[in-house]
Amino acid sequence: MAKTYDCLFKLLLIGDSGVGKTSILFRFSEDAFNISFISTIGIDFKIRTIDLDGKKVKLQIWDTAGQERFRTITTAYYRGSMGIMLVYDVTNEKSFENIKNWIRNIEENASADVEKMILGNKCDLDAKRQVSKERGEQLAVEYQIKFVETSAKDSLNVEYAFYTLARDIKAKMEKKQEASNPPGGRSGAHQLKANEQQRKPTSWLSRCSVL
C-alpha cells in the first residue's frame, strides 16, 4: 500500500523514574478508563499523527522502562532515534541534577545530530516545587537545548513540546538535504501544492522519510 504520510520521526522519552514519562504520553481526562490490563503490561511506544505545516507527520514515541538508569542505557537503546525528550520532575531536585548525566549518556551513545528538548514536568505542583523555572532555563541555555515546563496532568505544553521537537527535526533534515542536494533543477520541490504533491509523492518522500 502507498504511504499515506510525509515523514516518520522516532522519538524517545528519557529521565529518572517517576518524573512522568509515561504520563506525558497519556491524556488525563475526567472519566479515566480502568486501564489495569494495559498498564500492567506497559506501553512500549505510541504512534501519533500530527500536522506540521501542512505535512502529515507520524511520530513513533518510545517510552523507556521504569527502572532504566543512564548507566544501563546504551547505543542499542538510541538506535534510530531522531529526537529525545529529557524529562525531569520540578518537585524532585535529584531528577533535575540527573539531566546532565542523561545528556552525557546521549552524547556517548546516541547519534551526534539527534534533536533534544528538556521538559520540566509536574509544573502544576507549585507548592512542592524544588526546581525553579529559571534553573531549568539556565540549564537549557548551557547546553543549547530547548526547554519548556509541562504538566502531563493538566495537558499543559505537552503537545507544544512534541510539535516543537518534530519541527526542529524536520528543519534539520531539510537543511541537510538542501546541503547534499543543492538548489537547481529540483529546487522548490517541497513547495509544491498539496495536490501536486500527491501526484508526485516521491519528491517529498525522498526528502523526509527516514525509515
Binding site: S29, I35, I38, I41, I43, D44, K46, I47, R48
Partner: peptide, 26 residues
C-alpha cells in the same frame, strides 16, 4: 504507520496489544 494514533504494549508471547494512544483503553 498506517495508524493515526495507537499504543503498542510490551511484547507478550510474540504479540503486542493495541491500545488507545490517548486514554490507554485496550
Amino acid at each position: 504507520y498506517t495508524f493515526e494514533n495507537i499504543g503498542f504494549t510490551h511484547t507478550v508471547d510474540n504479540y503486542k496489544y493495541l491500545s488507545c494512544a490517548d486514554c490507554d483503553a485496550g
